[in-house]
Write a protein that binds this DNA or RNA. Structure first.
Lengths: 343, 343
DNA sequence: CTGAAAGCGCTTACAG
DNA sequence: CTGAAAGCGCTTACAG
């Protein structure tokens, strides 16, 4: 029942353990015939390299880390993470690399967790998510010399490779679409203002509207929760000059907005068009179903894994631009039918 | 920049590496004064044990594994996993144990993944989720002698400890509640029939109704998806003798049921009461908000981690019964107001 | 092409 | 109470 070691294989094959190691790792120094025999024996014995032993001599853990820094009760109904992780792993597994996961409440705890993993040599590299505009983690990781991939825009102040998609273009598509429908009073319910992601979308929102000679009807910062989405929508819809279209930075808030509109007697899409900045099943579960910016999150995870693995293999750090989210039009957005509609 | 080893500490302290190891691990054999000095030096140098080295000599990885066997597109909007994992980790971290995660499509791939981790000695133990009534994994893990904790009912045919809660009691509470409201035609939209969880709930449903002299109005198996929930509800509500109350095995299907009822012009809760078998934010996001069986999922994860850690520490395998889910009553369920209402 | 040996950084019996 | 040494299971220069 004891798991076999290269020693056992060497004995059975009548060669040295060095030869076994060379044969199993495809390195020169063993005749083809011997190599074949060794591999056959290893397979037959169900041998797998002891990760600790290999890690110790290679100084490589064949493991990467992912820390999610968010309050546990915020780990909500967004399917993003599970899908992203699933994509990550499908790639990591191909390279026999494992994924270590931890959930912590904030950036300080994240650095602490990563520092421990790194000091214990449990990980070779790291995936960094939810980047802030001012994000102390980036400099800290560079100081610690931890190979890392940023999930988000490349940073001008950092050499760490990033995997990102063009949020600005996606927001522009949304704005162009809504303006094309005749909307002129368009509001934005934004996510956490500290996130770089949110800043980029906000700026793109202004710029896209400006191209049409328009200004934002309003931009409201939130924390992504249902409650914040509901509150923001209530504020917007009970205002004098209420918007005819609202974009929400995620699906949960868009759903909250839809729900508030119904309560206030504002017809969606008749009087109010809604577009969600994240797509998920939730958008199809409500009525009317929500138009949303949609993307392949699993592919995003896969590309992130590939970028990190390349970095760990000693390749030049290179950022990767993932596909831009595309607008998926559903029932929550239609042409403006108000008095000031262009004719 | 090189990370310090016990060798560096030993040199600085002027002692042998053995003494350092003893001091740092709180074992006897070092004088109190020396011990203090060594610990101070280690702290100052930011030393942390190399996990590979320790793992190799201890034959213990200080890591446990969790494999989620489900199709990637099913990794839906249920917050259950992220919450459970977050609970798991808060405990594991206290014991300096890491969590390895993998997502695979089915049981065969799960066994393959676990087998690889185990053969490579990457994990000391395992958490097994989503148990089936007939589950080949249980026997396989016992054959492989992998320490594992089952998330679900203890198995009569296995010595593996389980962490579970009394689903039957929770279902009975739901039935008693609905019957108490005057409902006599109560249907159940069940989850995956292969899951032991589903079987137990189904049986409890029959038994609880029988105690009131009633029979199930219907029991429909599904795959937990929105679509299946919608289809089942449509079937139930367009039937001649339609139920006045439906229990759904999760929140997503309950939401689908609510949506279908609205489309069919069946008033909730006026003509139909709905109870969800899983609670989540989703239940509060719809109108009327859904009554649901609610539980502390993070605590469930914490207790699972504790049970596994105890097993790894050589304690006798002992199952743990977690708190029973409690019915949280919201707007989707009210007293029956039909013609056959008891007076 | 092959074998014998050192080394990765720990833990842990074993002598003193 | 302390030190010197073997061993965990690999990889990898280094001689032959």
């Amino acid at each position: 029942m004891k798991r076999p070691t290269i020693n056992d294989i060497a004995k059975r094959a009548g060669v040295s353990i060095g030869a076994v190691s060379f044969a199993l790792n495809g390195r020169p120094g063993v005749s083809l015939e011997t190599r074949r025999r060794i591999i056959a024996i290893a397979d037959e014995m169900g041998w797998r390299p002891n990760a600790a032993a290999r890690g110790l001599s290679e100084s490589r853990a064949h493991t990467v880390g992912l820390v999610l820094a968010r309050p546990a009760d915020t780990l909500g109904i967004e399917p993003f993470f599970m899908k992203f992780i699933s994509g990550l792993e499908s790639q990591l597994t191909l390279s026999r690399t494992a994924l270590l996961l931890q959930v912590v409440p904030d950036h300080a705890k994240e650095i602490e967790a990563v520092g421990a993993w790194w000091a214990e040599r449990r990980i070779d590299g790291l995936i960094v998510m939810d980047l802030w505009s001012e994000d102390s983690r980036v400099a800290t990781l560079e100081t610690m010399k931890i190979p890392a991939v940023l999930v988000g825009r490349p940073r001008p102040d950092s050499a760490l490779p990033a995997v990102w998609s063009d949020d600005a273009a996606a927001v522009a598509e949304t704005v162009d679409y809504l303006v094309g429908l005749g909307h002129t009073r368009i509001a934005r319910v934004a996510g956490l203002p500290a996130l770089e992601h949110t800043r980029v979308r906000g700026e793109a929102f202004r710029v896209a509207l400006a191209r049409h000679g328009l200004e934002p009807s309003a931009i409201i910062d939130t924390d992504y929760t249902w409650e914040a989405g509901a509150e923001a929508t209530t504020f917007l819809l009970t205002n004098r000059q209420r918007p005819t279209a609202i974009t929400f930075d995620n699906d949960v808030m868009a759903t909250a907005g839809l729900s508030v509109a119904r309560k206030l007697g504002v017809n969606v899409p008749g009087e109010l068009s809604i577009v969600a900045g994240d797509d998920s099943q939730l958008c199809e579960m409500v009525y009317p179903p929500l138009s949303a910016l949609s993307r392949d999150v699993q592919a995003y995870g896969m590309n992130t894994a590939r970028t990190l693995l390349a970095l760990l293999d000693g390749k030049e750090p290179a950022s990767y631009q993932d596909a831009t989210a595309r607008l998926r039009i559903r029932g929550s957005s239609v042409a403006r039918s108000g008095s000031d509609r262009p004719v």
